[in-house]
C-alpha cells in the first residue's frame, strides 16, 4: 500500500490508504477527542466529538474523523472556532446526563462547556455504545444492548444472557466513560437474579489495563 500524505494541523502526516483521519492523527500523536471510539471496535460515529474541519479541492466540510477516510492532499484542522463550538455544545448536552463524569468534565474545561447550560436529566449513560459493541464484537455474547429509539434510547443488560455470561467477564465496565454500565449491570443482577453471585464484582481497578481512558493532552495551536 502506498502512503498517502495529508496535512493535519499544519503537519505533513503519512497514512495508509483505507485509514481514517482519526487513525492517521493518533498515529502522528495528534489528539482528537472522542467518546465512542475504541481501537478494537468498528467505528461507530455516534458521539460526533471527533468532528474536524476538512479542506479538499477548495471545499471546507465538517466530518467525523473516526469514519472519514484519508485522502491525498486534504487539509485537516482538528480545532477551529466552529469545531470547538460543536464540541462545546455536544459536551454540554452530555453533561446534562452525566454532570460528573471525569472524562466529560475534563473536556468541558478544554472547550469551555457550561455544565448547567441545558436542563439536567441525570441518566448517567451517554449512549456511546462501547459496552454494547464490545460485548457484541469482541466477546460475541450480546449480554447488553440498545433498546428503544430516539430520545428514549437506552442500554440495558438482558437478564437471561447476563446471568450466564457476565460473572466472569465484566470487561465492559472499564470501557464506560460514566460508570453507568456497572450500575446497570448491578441493578439487573439485583432485580433478575439476586444472590447468585459466585465471584465478587470486579472493580474498575482490576480492569484498568483494558480501560479506554486516554489522558487529555490538547495539541498546541
Amino acid at each position: 500500500m502506498t502512503d498517502i500524505v495529508l496535512n493535519i494541523d499544519g503537519k505533513e502526516v503519512k497514512a495508509k490508504a483505507g485509514m481514517t483521519v482519526l487513525e492517521a492523527a493518533q498515529q502522528a500523536g495528534i489528539y482528537i477527542p472522542t467518546l465512542c471510539h475504541h481501537e478494537k471496535l468498528e467505528a461507530f460515529g455516534g458521539c460526533r466529538l471527533c468532528m474536524v474541519e476538512v479542506e479538499s479541492r477548495g471545499w471546507t466540510s465538517y466530518v467525523v474523523s473516526c469514519l472519514y477516510p484519508v485522502a491525498k492532499d486534504i487539509v485537516v484542522r482538528t480545532r477551529s472556532p466552529k469545531v470547538d463550538n460543536i464540541r462545546k455544545v455536544l459536551i454540554e448536552e452530555l453533561l446534562a446526563h452525566a454532570p460528573d463524569a471525569p472524562e466529560l468534565v475534563k473536556m468541558a474545561e478544554e472547550y469551555g462547556s457550561d455544565r448547567n447550560r441545558f436542563a439536567r436529566e441525570a441518566s448517567f449513560c451517554v449512549l456511546c455504545g462501547l459496552c454494547v459493541r464490545y460485548c457484541d464484537e469482541v466477546k460475541q455474547k450480546n449480554a447488553v444492548s440498545f433498546f428503544d429509539n430516539g430520545s428514549v434510547r437506552q442500554i440495558a443488560f438482558v437478564p437471561e444472557v447476563a446471568k450466564k455470561e457476565c460473572w466472569e467477564c465484566q470487561e465492559c465496565f472499564a470501557l464506560c466513560p460514566t460508570s453507568y454500565a456497572q450500575a446497570a449491570y448491578l441493578l439487573t443482577e439485583a432485580l433478575a437474579f439476586p444472590g447468585q453471585r459466585k465471584t465478587p464484582a470486579k472493580s474498575a481497578k482490576d480492569l484498568a489495563l483494558k480501560s479506554r481512558m486516554i489522558p487529555i493532552t490538547p495539541v498546541a495551536m
Binding site: 455516534g46 460526533r48 448536552e93 451517554v126 429509539n149 430516539g150
Partner: peptide, 11 residues
Amino acid sequence: SCGKCVPCREG
C-alpha cells in the same frame, strides 16, 4: 429519530 448520534438525539 434512531437515537444513535448525540447531536440529533440530545440536541
